[in-house]
């Protein structure tokens, strides 16, 4: 990736607080098109808050978000989705009452071209449109090897599979930028390996840019091209994985992090 190309995502001077509690303080960094960027840091460092700022779930008090060439004071969730940002959540946020297939199909909602009247009468574009969305969803299901659970209500799936379905819902939108909040939390070694594999494939096959939060340093080193370290809402490291790992501040911040 040459230096002259503008980054896909660029945050500058982002500050966010909740009733006086500072979650994020004056943070800025760039994410280049096509890279995997890892956000790391101890619990409560402000990692999730930052993802929420990027796709408009939280509105920062200060700063600017530039995505795909367009600068904004703050994102709105809908705006972010339209611009091509998709994400998963730290605490799984699936639609519990719906099947795996339907959850993944909701990821296609912005691509749907038929009106609700056409859908009610099953006329015009409605049927072909539904089939087109279904085909994309089916590709995602095959990619994530979820065929066996297509019609299972997601509430009945084990935790690891739910995480995979959530990734599927995000992938169905064919995003430009994928935000993953602890996609491997609570998984066993085998599940983690599988999930890393999926993430790498998404990045390589579809060229999707990825920002992910992860506590497992081993996984981070292996997977990411770029690491940003947060501590108490501030940025204390930013660069290539190996270089960042050697920074004294990062080592200091991570000494208390053995729990994870």
């Amino acid at each position: 990736m040459s230096e002259t190309v503008a980054p896909l995502l660029s945050l500058s001077h982002i500050s966010l607080s909740f009733k006086g509690v500072k979650a994020v303080t004056d943070i800025g960094f760039d994410v280049a098109e096509g890279e995997i960027c890892a956000l790391i840091g101890p619990n409560g460092a402000g990692k999730s808050s930052l993802l929420n700022v990027i796709n408009g779930v939280y509105q920062p008090q200060q700063g600017e978000i530039r995505f795909a060439g367009r600068a904004r004071r703050a994102m709105q969730p809908h705006e972010a989705a339209v611009a091509g940002i998709a994400r998963t959540f730290q605490n799984i946020a699936l639609f519990k009452g719906m099947s795996v297939l339907d959850n993944i199909l909701t990821g296609r909602n912005l691509a749907s071209r038929s009106s609700w009247l056409e859908q009610a009468f099953r006329v015009g574009r409605a049927v072909a449109d539904e089939e087109a969305q279904r085909a994309v969803a089916e590709e995602v299901i095959a990619f994530l090897r979820l065929q066996a659970w297509r019609h299972t209500p997601v509430g009945q799936l084990p935790y690891g599979l739910q995480k995979r379905v959530e990734l599927g819902r995000a992938l169905a939108a064919r995003p430009r930028l994928l935000l993953l909040d602890e996609p491997m939390a609570g998984m066993n070694r085998e599940e983690k390996r599988e999930m890393s594999q999926f993430i790498r494939e998404v990045n390589q096959v579809f060229g999707t840019t990825i920002v992910l939060i992860e506590h497992d340093i081993g996984v981070v080193m292996e997977l990411s091209d770029h690491v940003v370290v947060l501590d108490y809402g501030r940025k204390i490291g930013d660069g290539e994985p190996e270089a960042v790992r050697a920074l004294p501040e990062v080592i200091a911040a991570y000494l208390g992090q053995q729990r994870h």
């Binding site: 969730p77 809908h78 972010a80 998709a86 946020a93 519990k96 009452g97 990821g107 995000a170």
Partner: peptide, 10 residues
């Protein structure tokens, strides 16, 4: 089921 997630997917 979850309106925040619904808003996030557009």
């Amino acid at each position: 089921d979850m309106d925040t997630a619904a808003a996030v997917i557009g």
